Amino acid sequence: MSNEQDVIVRNNNNDEEEIDLLEIASKLWKSRRTIFIYCGIGAILGLIVAFSIPKEYTTTIKLAPELNGSSSGASKLGSLASMAGINLGSANAGGDAVMPQLYPDVLSSTPFLVGLFDVPVTESKTDATYPLYTYIEDHTSGTWWGYLFGLPFKAIGGVMSLIRGNDDEEGVGDGELNPFRLTKDQEEIKNALAKRIVCSYDQKTGVNTISVTMQNPLVSALVADTVAAHLQAFITEYRTSKARQDLAYAEQLNEEARKEYYDAQQRLADYLDRNQNLSYYSAQVTRDRLTNESNLAFSLFNQTAQQLQMAKAKVQETTPVYATVEPATVPIKASKPSKVMVLFGFIFLGGVIASAKIIFADKITELKQSFSK
């Protein structure tokens, strides 16, 4: 008998739930005018917000770094391991500390970003050229609500700076750019650049993707191309640093050997000019000694010349080559904001607020009455 009662209770609960859902649907349908009004308000707010956000343009470059022939087999093994979720990048690098996986860290480092401050950029609308630092500081706009909410913090910061004095704000104080000690404004520009320059590495394909987002399409393309060039120059300088040091040392040895060889030749020539008709044995011994010194100097000069050529070939061999899979092009369409998504988001939010108000109107009224008592 108890089982039948449980079944009856469950059926009653299900009926109540169905009745509640139907009641909620009925409330919403009866108050559909209110929902439409809220959705309309949301659409208006969405349009205001969507057109208040500045347009951003994104330029994407894809670089494929060169793989050394000696590590090609290891790279194939690494690609197979990466498919299984195993990272063998350090083993495949062949002693190279700056692997492609670390390129995003290089691009976000302070010296790299500070090195972009003086890069000249040209706006597409005005054809005016500024340093990138000036463009980010003076020619990049934000949203009106960002300025509005930021005013109190700026006022507080100004008061605090007056209290503390300006010593902490001036950095080194000589007006020069010092990556070791940036001023507050320079730190803000550096952080803004770090957000606008993004680099990602694909473990499977080994391709680095560099994306630069700016409020001007031409500036976006110029900065992206410059970032790729600076990255390639940095990696090239790092990988060829040892070979270039060896080349400089070989050039020094070759120059010293050349000078010694020319001096030995000149000493032999001067002696022969002064002692042409002498047949003394002492004169012959001196001539033979100077001749041997000249021959030895020439042999050393010849060896250092060969070493110099080998050092030059080593520099060329260690210089990496990058295949530009996708070069920089001036974007035509803005990457953000998506006005349609913003509009539908606000319309949906307006509908949700209106529905919540309609559903919980009775409970809100009861709470008000209970508090009033």
Results as ranks from 00 to 15, higher is better:
D225Y: 07
V219F: 02
A257I: 05
T209M: 01
T213C: 00
Q252T: 13
T209K: 02
D185Y: 07
V207K: 03
Q232C: 05
D263A: 15
A243F: 00
G146D: 15
Q245D: 13
G158F: 01
L222N: 10
R196K: 15
T205M: 01
N166Q: 15
D185G: 13
M214E: 03
V198E: 03
K184T: 14
G146A: 12
K204F: 10
W144F: 11
L193F: 07
G165H: 06
W145M: 13
F153V: 11
L253H: 09
P217K: 12
T213I: 01
E187N: 12
S200T: 15
G165N: 07
V223L: 03
L148K: 07
F234V: 01
F234M: 02
F149C: 07
P217E: 08
E169R: 14
G157R: 13
R164H: 10
A194N: 14
Y147V: 09
E176N: 15
E188N: 12
D263P: 03
D167E: 14
Y238K: 12
L151G: 07
D225S: 15
L193A: 11
A228W: 00
N208L: 12
W144L: 12
A194F: 05
F153A: 14
L148F: 08
Y261A: 12
T213W: 00
D174V: 08
V172K: 13
V198T: 10
I189S: 02
I210R: 00
A250L: 00
F153D: 11
E255W: 04
R181H: 12
E176T: 15
L151H: 06
L218N: 12
L253F: 10
A192C: 09
A264S: 14
T213G: 00
R164W: 06
N216K: 09
D202P: 01
G206Q: 02
R196T: 09
D185F: 05
Y238Q: 13
L151C: 06
E260Q: 12
S211R: 11
E256C: 07
G165K: 08
Q232V: 10
Y238G: 08
Y261W: 11
Q186R: 06
I156K: 09
S161I: 08
K259H: 09
I163Q: 08
Y238L: 14
E176Y: 11
G165Q: 04
K195E: 15
G165A: 06
L182P: 00
W144M: 10
A257D: 11
L151I: 11
K184G: 06
W144Y: 12
S161E: 14
H230C: 07
T236G: 04
F153M: 13
T213N: 03
V172W: 07
E170Y: 11
M160E: 13
E169S: 15
I210S: 00
G165I: 05
S211G: 04
L253E: 14
P179I: 04
Y261C: 10
G165C: 06
G146F: 08
D168K: 14
R244F: 00
D185T: 14
R239C: 02
R164D: 13
G158W: 02
A229V: 09
S220E: 03
N216G: 10
T213S: 03
D168I: 09
A264N: 05
L231S: 04
N216A: 14
Q203G: 07
A221T: 08
D174H: 06
P217A: 13
M214G: 02
P179T: 09
Q252A: 14
S161Y: 03
E251N: 13
Y147Q: 12
A155R: 04
W145C: 09
I189G: 01
F234A: 03
L247M: 04
D263H: 10
L218Q: 13
N216M: 07
